[in-house]
Design a binder for these strands. Structure first.
Length: 436
DNA sequence: TACATACAC
DNA sequence: TATGGTGTATGTA
């Protein structure tokens, strides 16, 4: 039923706006909006329109809208008989307690390679210098050169969409082994400054340089400059670093004052989307409850709402974000802490059960190989599959013995209840390493 | 334990 | 023509 009341038009246009933003991909908001992001988003949306992917994104966007409606209804109900001043006072008390936990004694550094895959390709192929290019794997971009980013090209974007934004974009195939090689080299350098450093993916990590600075009578700034120079000398690649929570890219470093006031001033204007753990969905939910400018300063003004919906939003996490206090211990993950291993394949839609089972066999074989290499066994096998509509199903089964063989992984075939599959993922959760 | 969702890289 | 792969955390039932 068509309706043209101003309110309906407004609701529809808001929905479209959130969908268009969603289609722009998870990394578009993180990196900061380009000047003509609206035009970029329109091109992306037009290129997607009509596809099954688009329809699925529309469905998920609608689900978030419904979630927001429920949240607002709940909020309205809860506020009816709420002594807001009292709740706010108790939040202020909690904030005081959290503030007492602030520890400014540790020098924590976040190091992050600039456009890592793209710059490795540039290193091995200097003719790419100054060109708009992107590294692509399985039709999806993993990195874009800085020149390409100016066109709105982002990691995670489908290659054919990127081509619409930037028709002369050069696509370079992923070379994983090469990135691993250089990653090992970089991590080796970071280790010299903090043996307990915690890698985050293959191109970034967290370091506690307190001890190093003490032993070498250096300031954090001097130390980080040295780290960055060493990485450049040994790899010819640039790295950026934030001492405290900020990052300054490319080839930069930034140190935030070690002072509660300066840190709070920093978070006050920090878009909440930049906080790790706040993605596209959380951003929308938080916006709906009044984090209007989408900055962390609004966490304080909305502390009453957040507190009555602690489960939804994670009250303490958000308050700590507002205060700019997070864990300041850095510890490498140990082998024993790993919780799962999996293998996943995406393919063009298969309809026949025989073809699907052949694919499943392939995935099971790969998982068995990876498990043997790293020496792991597990007890809960999860099958995840995706239909051509992009709808995802997961089916899990725990068993009373240690699984290590392909044949047992392959047994998940019993749990497939559909055809038109386009993706299969077998995952194994484990409790212990394989016996020697 | 089973399943779905959200998120990071 | 066409939208990845690996792993973690968490809420709910």
């Amino acid at each position: 039923m068509e309706s043209n009341s101003p309110k309906d038009t407004l609701v529809r246009s808001q929905e479209t706006e959130s969908l268009v933003k969603r289609l722009a991909g998870p990394s578009s908001g993180k990196a900061g909006l380009a000047k003509d992001q609206t035009e970029i988003n329109r091109i992306i949306s037009d290129a997607s329109k009509g596809s099954k992917f688009y329809e699925n994104e529309k469905k998920k966007d609608k689900e978030v809208t419904v979630r927001i409606e429920k949240i607002l209804k709940y909020k309205e109900e809860a506020f009816k008989n709420l002594d807001v001043a009292k709740v706010e006072a108790s939040m202020d008390h909690l904030i005081e307690q959290l503030e007492e936990q602030r520890d400014l004694t540790q020098l924590i550094v976040h190091v992050d390679m600039d456009a890592f895959f793209a710059n490795v390709e540039l290193l091995d192929n200097p003719s790419l210098a100054g060109k708009t290019f992107a590294v692509v794997g399985k039709g999806v971009l993993t990195t874009a050169s800085y020149e390409a980013r100016k066109f709105g090209v982002r990691s995670g974007m489908a290659a054919f969409i990127a081509k619409k934004l930037c028709p002369h974009l050069i696509l370079v195939e992923n070379r994983h082994w090469r990135y691993s090689e250089i990653s090992d080299q970089i991590m080796g350098i970071f280790h010299r400054y903090d043996p307990d450093m915690c890698p985050a993916g293959c191109d970034e990590g967290y370091l506690n340089i307190t001890a190093y600075c003490e032993e070498h009578a250096m300031t954090a700034e001097e130390c980080v400059r040295e780290i960055r120079e060493t990485v450049f000398r040994e790899t010819k690649l640039t790295v950026s670093a934030g001492i405290a929570p900020n990052k300054n890219k490319p080839n930069g470093q930034y140190q935030l004052d070690f002072d509660a006031k300066a840190i709070k001033a920093f978070t006050h204007d920090l878009p909440i989307r930049k906080v790790p753990g706040i993605g596209r969905v959380s951003e929308r939910l938080l916006e709906a409850i009044g984090i209007k400018a989408s900055t962390c300063g609004d966490i304080y003004t909305q502390r009453a709402v957040i507190s009555i919906m602690d489960k939804q939003f994670g009250l303490v996490y958000l308050l700590r974000t507002y205060l700019g206090i997070s864990s300041n211990t850095v510890q490498a993950h140990t082998r024993e802490e790993r919780k799962s291993i999996g293998a996943e394949r995406t393919f063009s839609t298969l309809h026949k059960l025989d073809d699907i089972l052949a694919k499943l066999d392939e995935v099971a074989a790969e998982l068995e190989k990876d498990m043997q290499e790293d020496g792991w066994v597990g007890r809960t096998i999860t099958l995840k599959y995706k239909l051509d509509t992009y709808r995802v199903f997961t089916r899990a089964k725990s068993v009373d013995h240690w699984v290590s063989k392909k044949e047992e992984l392959y047994a998940v075939r019993q749990m497939i209840h559909s055809s038109h599959l386009t993706n299969i993922n077998i995952l194994l959760d484990w409790q212990r390493p394989a016996p020697p």
